[in-house]
Simulated scan of single mutants.
Amino acid sequence: MRNTRWMGLAAVVCAAGLAGCGKKDEGPSYAFVTNGVASFWDIAKSGAEAAGQELGVDVTVLMPNGVVEQKQMIEDLVIRGADGIAISPIDPDNQTEVINEAAAATNLITADSDAPKSDRMFYLGVDNYEAGRMCGQLVKEALPDGGKVMIFIGRLEQDNAKRRRQGVIDELLDRSMDPTRFDPPAEVLKNDKYEILGTLTDQFDRVRGKQNMDDTLTAHPDLGCAVGLFVFNPPLILESLKSAGKLGQVKVVGFDEADETLQGILDGHVHGTVVQNPFEYGKRSIEILHALNQGDTSVVPEDGFINVPARQIRKDTAEAFWADLKSKLGE
């Protein structure tokens, strides 16, 4: 049953004569809400739209610029009567209320990043802590004798960002498995081989992201490895290294499958990257939401987690992976 708060708000909006009220007559409609604007989400959009075409349903993919806009998008989708919503929460700890209200009004799942304290039905994506440890393994390969490491990431409010970063740190420091551990981003951490200088965030600001790497190169001319954990971070790292004339001198390990990152692997400037499967995130989210709307609850996992495994991409697998990705995108 729909939450009465949303029903009342929807009635007010429609009574005011605003466009877009109500569901389309031609069939069910579903939405996929990302946590930002990035090439990663362009791939997820292709997957969601492919599922929509196959199922003959209406699919909307929305890419917010920040948590306020994401909240507004969720509220609007509920008012419009979306039959299901998949969302990658930006700040789950402070979005619980809006997520719970939307979950009371329609089928709601999280994809890519979770909101484990919310009433979402389940989470679809990678185990980000394990994926972070996979990234740490690549750093160990790139820098086998140890050295200084700096971590770059868009934001740390997201559940996936916290877990991914912690996985890298714990792997480099040879710690036990503990996804609940959290080291302060400004703290210098080290063991007998690796010194993790800190974690720098950019809040999806590309200029700031590149400046973070520029500043790191100035402050630490002996930097051994730069780790970029959001899709746009490795390309910014490469841009900074090129400007400084240090391509190949500082090891680079990435996350996700930006074209610049994959080309960097082929060129020998990036050791490797850990990739998710954003195409499947989009496609499977819409397929599952449609099944739920048709009354099929068998798609709901008992443990609340649908695992879409991450993979490590190195030079020997980069070309084949990239070709497959392009085929999915129709390129």
Results as ranks from 00 to 15, higher is better:
residue 119 D to C: 06
residue 87 I to A: 01
residue 181 R to P: 01
residue 229 L to V: 02
residue 224 G to E: 04
residue 265 I to T: 08
residue 45 K to L: 13
residue 196 I to L: 07
residue 102 A to T: 11
residue 121 M to Q: 12
residue 327 S to R: 06
residue 198 G to N: 06
residue 144 P to H: 14
residue 141 E to F: 13
residue 111 A to W: 03
residue 103 A to F: 03
residue 37 V to T: 03
residue 265 I to Y: 11
residue 222 D to L: 12
residue 180 T to S: 07
residue 131 A to N: 01
residue 259 D to A: 06
residue 24 K to D: 09
residue 59 V to Q: 13
residue 156 L to S: 06
residue 165 R to A: 02
residue 56 G to H: 03
residue 140 K to D: 01
residue 313 I to K: 02
residue 110 T to M: 02
residue 290 H to I: 09
residue 206 R to F: 08
residue 64 P to E: 01
residue 200 L to Q: 10
residue 61 V to W: 00
residue 84 G to Q: 04
residue 53 Q to R: 12
residue 327 S to W: 03
residue 173 L to A: 02
residue 61 V to E: 01
residue 147 G to V: 01
residue 67 V to C: 14
residue 185 P to T: 07
residue 22 G to D: 09
residue 158 Q to F: 05
residue 203 Q to V: 07
residue 234 P to C: 06
residue 96 T to L: 13
residue 298 S to V: 03
residue 180 T to P: 05
residue 229 L to P: 00
residue 301 P to N: 09
residue 268 G to C: 02
residue 211 Q to A: 02
residue 227 V to Q: 02
residue 199 T to C: 15
residue 320 A to W: 15
residue 317 T to D: 08
residue 272 G to A: 00
residue 105 A to L: 11
residue 127 D to K: 00
residue 14 C to E: 12
residue 72 Q to G: 10
residue 134 M to N: 05
residue 54 E to L: 11
residue 191 N to D: 14
residue 40 F to K: 04
residue 58 D to P: 03
residue 88 S to I: 04
residue 242 K to H: 12
residue 24 K to I: 11
residue 268 G to A: 11
residue 164 R to K: 09
residue 14 C to K: 15
residue 14 C to D: 08
residue 205 D to Q: 10
residue 237 I to E: 04
residue 60 T to W: 00
residue 247 L to R: 01
residue 179 P to M: 02
residue 149 V to E: 00
residue 202 D to S: 02
residue 166 Q to N: 05
residue 295 G to K: 14
residue 186 A to G: 15
residue 228 G to S: 14
residue 64 P to I: 08
residue 287 E to G: 13
residue 277 N to M: 10
residue 18 L to I: 14
residue 36 G to Q: 02
residue 43 I to Y: 10
residue 216 T to R: 01
residue 78 V to M: 14
residue 161 A to V: 01
residue 131 A to P: 01
residue 55 L to T: 12
residue 40 F to N: 04
residue 11 A to R: 15
residue 274 V to T: 09
residue 301 P to C: 06
residue 207 V to H: 13
residue 251 K to G: 01
residue 235 P to A: 14
residue 186 A to L: 09
residue 173 L to P: 05
residue 283 K to H: 11
residue 216 T to P: 10
residue 235 P to S: 07
residue 38 A to V: 00
residue 186 A to Y: 09
residue 282 G to W: 00
residue 185 P to I: 05
